[in-house]
């Protein structure tokens, strides 16, 4: 009798164990992705431009096309895409003109290189001009202070002679 009960217990244990194992792992519970806020969407949208209306950033464009684009950004953010991945998607689909800043490649480099070079060149020219003007302003003072006759340009010989005569009479 005791053996029969033990046998029954063992049988039931085996049945439960096989049922438990055959059930397999419990299905994974998928976490609900939080919907990205408007600020997160606009942070990316402001770096893109509407392709339909020229020169209007995507975050403020009121057209239906841009509303759809913002929703697409929201969807991609919810899928875990990074800002770079989203921008890359938009460039592939709509061209580089949607970017607020042209990509740093090819002829686009001119946009980044020429303005600073022009600024530096202009600053250098101004620096040289200021130095020349300073030198020209100081030369008469220095010559007056040294007591010698002021150096006159060769073409202004009359003025030089006039100045020399004045010195002699002093």
């Amino acid at each position: 009798m005791k053996f029969a009960r033990l046998g029954l217990l063992a049988f039931l244990s085996l049945v439960f164990a096989s049922l438990f194992l055959s059930a397999g792992p419990a299905p994974a519970v998928l976490a609900q992705q939080p919907t990205p806020a408007d600020d997160e969407v606009n942070a990316i949208a402001q770096e893109l431009f509407c392709p339909v209306c020229e020169n209007v950033p995507l975050d403020v464009c009121p057209t239906e096309a841009c509303r759809q684009w913002r929703e697409l950004i929201r969807q991609m953010l919810a899928e875990g895409k990074s800002e770079e991945e989203i921008q890359q998607y938009f460039v592939e689909n709509y061209g580089a003109r949607v970017l607020s800043e042209p990509p740093r490649e090819g002829i686009n480099w001119l946009v980044y290189v020429v303005p600073p070079l022009a600024f530096l060149g202009g600053a250098y020219l101004l620096f040289r001009a200021f130095r020349t003007w300073q030198r020209l302003a100081r030369e008469p003072e220095a010559e007056a202070g040294s007591g010698s006759a002021p150096a006159a340009p060769p073409e202004d010989e009359y003025a030089a002679r006039f100045e020399a005569e004045l010195k002699k009479r002093k």
């Binding site: 392709p51 339909v52 460039v91 592939e92 689909n93 709509y94 061209g95 003109r97």
Partner: peptide, 16 residues
């Protein structure tokens, strides 16, 4: 889709 708006540019579309 007109990927990269390349086909539109062939037709020089700028009207809508």
């Amino acid at each position: 889709p007109d990927m990269g708006t390349e086909i539109s540019r062939i037709f020089n579309r700028n009207l809508g």
